[in-house]
C-alpha cells in the first residue's frame, strides 16, 4: 500500500494513494447521479408544462416550513462536512469528529421530518396508487407520483450519505483516516454535497411553485 514512486527528476511521491485519480473516480460516479436525477427533472418539466395549474395547486399542499427547515439542515450539514475535512487536514481530529457528528444529526433530523411529512400525506390518503389519487384528475396523480419518486430517491441518497459519513467518522476515530490520508472523508463529503445539490432543486420545484 505504501509504495514510493520516484519520478525522473528524483522527486518522490509517497503514500501510494493517487489523490487526483481518487477524486476523478468519485466525480465520474457523481456524473451518473446527476444524469439519474436529471432524467427525473425532465419528467417533472414535461408534466409541469402539461399541468401547470395542478402543479401549482398541489404544491401548496406541501408544507413550506418543513421544506425550508430541511433545506437549512442540509445546507448546514454540507458546511460542517466541508469544515470537517479542513479540520482533519489541519490535524484537529476531535473537531473533525464533532463536525461529522453534527452533519450526521442534521441528516437524521432531515429524515425524521420527511417521515412526518410523508406520514401526514399518507393519513390524507395521498400515497402512490391510493384510491383518493386513482380517482383524482391526472395532474394530481402525476404531481404526487413525481413527489414520492423524487423525494423518495433523494431520501435513499440521504441514507447512503449518512452511512458514508458514519464510516468516515469511525475511520477518523481509529486514526485510519488522517491529515495525510483523507480520501474517504473527502469522497464521502463529495457525495453528501451532491445530496445537498439535488435538494436545492427539489425544494423550489415541489414546495415553492406558484
Amino acid at each position: 500500500m505504501f509504495r514510493t514512486i520516484r519520478h525522473r527528476d528524483g522527486s518522490a511521491m509517497t503514500g501510494g494513494c493517487d489523490q487526483i485519480g481518487g477524486r476523478i473516480g468519485m466525480w465520474l460516479f457523481l456524473y451518473t447521479e446527476i444524469i439519474l436525477f436529471g432524467g427525473l427533472f425532465v419528467l417533472y418539466a414535461a408534466y409541469f408544462h402539461e399541468y401547470p395549474r395542478a402543479f401549482a395547486e398541489y404544491g401548496k399542499e406541501l408544507d413550506r416550513v418543513i421544506g425550508a427547515v430541511n433545506t437549512v439542515l442540509l445546507l448546514v450539514s454540507s458546511f460542517t462536512v466541508a469544515a470537517s475535512l479542513t479540520a482533519l487536514r489541519q490535524g484537529m481530529r476531535r473537531l473533525c469528529l464533532g463536525l461529522l457528528a453534527v452533519s450526521f444529526c442534521c441528516g437524521t433530523i432531515f429524515l425524521v421530518n420527511k417521515y412526518f411529512e410523508w406520514g401526514h400525506k399518507f393519513a390524507m390518503g395521498l400515497y402512490p396508487s391510493s384510491p383518493a389519487l386513482a380517482g383524482a384528475p391526472p395532474g394530481k396523480n402525476i404531481f404526487f407520483g413525481l413527489y414520492y419518486v423524487i423525494t423518495g430517491l433523494h431520501g435513499l441518497h440521504v441514507l447512503i450519505g449518512m452511512t458514508l459519513l458514519a464510516i468516515s467518522f469511525v475511520l477518523v476515530q481509529r486514526r485510519r483516516a488522517t491529515a495525510d490520508r483523507y480520501a474517504i472523508l473527502e469522497n464521502s463529503g463529495l457525495y453528501w454535497h451532491l445530496v445537498d445539490l439535488i435538494w436545492i432543486f427539489v425544494f423550489p420545484l415541489f414546495y415553492l411553485i406558484l
Binding site: I20, R23, I24, W27, L28, Y31, I34, I35, G38, G39, F41, V42, A45, A46, H49, E50
Partner: peptide, 24 residues
C-alpha cells in the same frame, strides 16, 4: 480533467433536458 468532464456532463444534461422539453 475534472473541470472539463464536469462541464461536459452539464452540457449533456442541458441537451437532454432542452431537447426533450423542446419536443414536449
Amino acid at each position: 480533467a475534472i473541470r472539463v468532464s464536469f462541464i461536459g456532463t452539464i452540457c449533456f444534461l442541458a441537451i437532454m433536458i432542452g431537447f426533450t422539453f423542446w419536443d414536449v
